[in-house]
Structure formats: C-alpha cells, structure tokens
C-alpha cells in the first residue's frame, strides 16, 4: 500500500525545494545575461571568433549565430540563425555546420548552471560538451559527405 502521508510530505517539500534552488540561480543569471546582451558583448566578441572559424572552413558570417545560440540558447539563437538564412548572407554549408555545432552545444550558461545546481561536475558537462562539439563539427566540415550534399544545395531552402 502507498504511504500517502510520506508521499505527500516528500513530494511537497522536495518539489518546492527544487524550484527554490533553481530560482536562486535563474534570477541572477537572467540579469547578467540581459546586461551582456545590452552591452553587446557577443557582437564585439564575434569579430574575434571569426578567424577561428576558418579551421572549419566557415565564413565570419557564421560567428554571430554560433555565439548567440551557444551562449543564450536556441530560442534566442534561432532568430539570428533564421535571419541569416533568410537574408542569404550565409551559405548552406555554414548553416549546416552551425546546426551541427549548436545541436551538441547550446545555451551553455543557463542549462549548465541548472545541472551544476543538481550536483553535476561542471568541468565534464561544460568542457566535455565543448570538446565534443568542436571535434564533431571539424570532422563533419572535412567530410566528403558534406561536400557532396553541398552541390545539391546551392540555394538555402527557407520557410519550407
């Protein structure tokens, strides 16, 4: 038989405690992220990142979507990515690689902080994911498969 009293106590106290811990992390984080956004830290930083992207054979245009998605998450990032795709400033190849990188590694601040609060190892969950994303994006960027796909996709299909 279910011990209803013990269940109610554990469910009530435990769930509220979890929410309280998460809220204590989310508030300062959101304040800092909004400040970073308004100070346009990423726009300045993205110029410095552009040369690094040459390693993946990507153009500098890809650096802002990559940084915005990586730091703030796909919800913010999607706007910038879709806008770049629509305007045609970014090639299908770059866009594909941005998707590969971001699918493995995005929203590194908020999501990582929440898991650290639960007791996960920060070095593993942040460093491990970053290394994985860089290695995989590099491998995909050098693969013959991408080159062959690229030929068939000279135009970026948007809004379909």
């Amino acid at each position: 038989m279910v011990d209803w009293l013990a269940f109610a106590r554990e469910a009530g106290r435990g769930s509220l405690e979890s929410v309280a811990i998460m809220a204590a992390i989310i508030f300062p984080l959101m304040l800092l992220m909004e400040m970073a956004r308004d100070a346009q830290l990423l726009d300045r930083f993205s110029e410095k990142v552009s040369p690094v992207l040459k390693v993946f054979g990507m153009s500098g245009e890809a650096s802002l979507p990559l940084l915005v998605g990586g730091v703030f998450g796909l919800a913010y990032g999607a706007g910038v990515i879709i806008e770049s795709a629509r305007s045609g400033r970014i090639t299908w190849r770059d866009l594909f690689l941005v998707n590969v990188f971001l699918s493995l590694c995005h929203s590194v601040i908020e999501d990582t902080a929440l898991f650290i609060a639960l007791g996960a190892d920060p070095v593993v969950i942040l460093g491990g994911r970053l290394v994985l994303a860089v290695v995989i994006t590099y491998l995909v960027s050098r693969s013959g498969w991408l080159t062959s796909r690229e030929r068939g996709k000279l135009k970026v299909p948007v809004g379909g």
């Binding site: 998460m22 809220a23 984080l29 959101m30 992220m33 909004e34 400040m35």
Partner: peptide
C-alpha cells in the same frame, strides 16, 4: 530597462 527585462525573464523562466 535592462534590469527590468532581466527580472522579467527571471520570473518567466522560473
């Protein structure tokens, strides 16, 4: 307004 937006996002996300 940055701070306001940050707090609003904090409430919303929480």
């Amino acid at each position: 307004s940055t701070v306001k937006r940050g707090l609003h996002k904090g409430f919303y996300t929480t």
